[in-house]
Amino acid sequence: MKSNRISTIIVLLISMLFVQAFSYAQEDEAEYDGYITKLSLSYIKNTNNVKTLRCVITAKKGEINLPLENAELKFYAGNEQSLLLGVQKTNNEGFASLDINNELKLPQDDSGAVLYRVEYKGLENSKDVTAEVSVVDINLELSLEEIDSVKTITVKGTRIGKNGEILPVKGQDLTIYVKRLYTNLKIGEINLSEDEGIGSTEFKSIPGDSVGNILIIAKIEDNELYATVEKSKEIKWGSIVSYDRTSKKRELWTNEAPIWMAITLAIFLLGVWYHLVRVFIKMRKIKKLGEQIEGVA
């Protein structure tokens, strides 16, 4: 076990030295007119096995940091004989992304990694910027089972070798999240075993949605070799939470008043107006009597 881990670290270190892109997301900068253009590239493989390259391009000058909109970015794969993956324009946040066609045969290096590159040519008076990232493609298998009435999350990591054989991803740490409104909530960690590349952890109770559904995500994040890879599954493991404020119809702060208030007000108004109407009637009577007297006179 121990020697295995050490060898992994050595491999890692070597790959960091020899593989050109040692970082999972690289940034490049170029300066013009006092503005520094900054380009960053990252790679994400989502739960549907869609590989996406994401790019953000900004221009910075002192305090001002503005995203570049409508910038044309070219995405390539491979080092020497690079393959053009596609061209995308950035949106108003300086962001562009490209989904990599899974049917393409991507040029790999000896370690099985693919080098992705993005280029921005800029306009006449600006310099080129490029960013690169090197990624080894892996697959995660996520299984959610109740083993001896213990809810267990199991993850298996695999990659395809040079000759098409399936190899385990050994010793990799990954994080288990549940999906939340704004961010993912970490609920555990898994270390893939050194032999089979399998790891598991227990799921502890956590609120789900109104029917108890919960989305469990296994994720390797910003890894030097594998970049970001995630796998998720929905399951009815969450405790059911219902929050019903609609039952509070007649409160002090709702639109409709508590019944007793309405009743009290009604009593008050009825009481007063009953007497006021009586008085009105009597006043008319006085007038009628007066007219009668005048009529007689």
């Binding site: 008085v279 009577k285 006085i286 007066g290 007297i293």
Partner: peptide, 22 residues
């Protein structure tokens, strides 16, 4: 505004009654 008030006992009775209510 005097509503044809003539100080007849009837009118007087009505007016004092309503004044009491009010």
């Amino acid at each position: 505004l005097a509503l044809g008030y003539q100080e007849t006992p009837w009118q007087y009775k009505i007016i004092s009654h309503t004044k009491n209510i009010m």
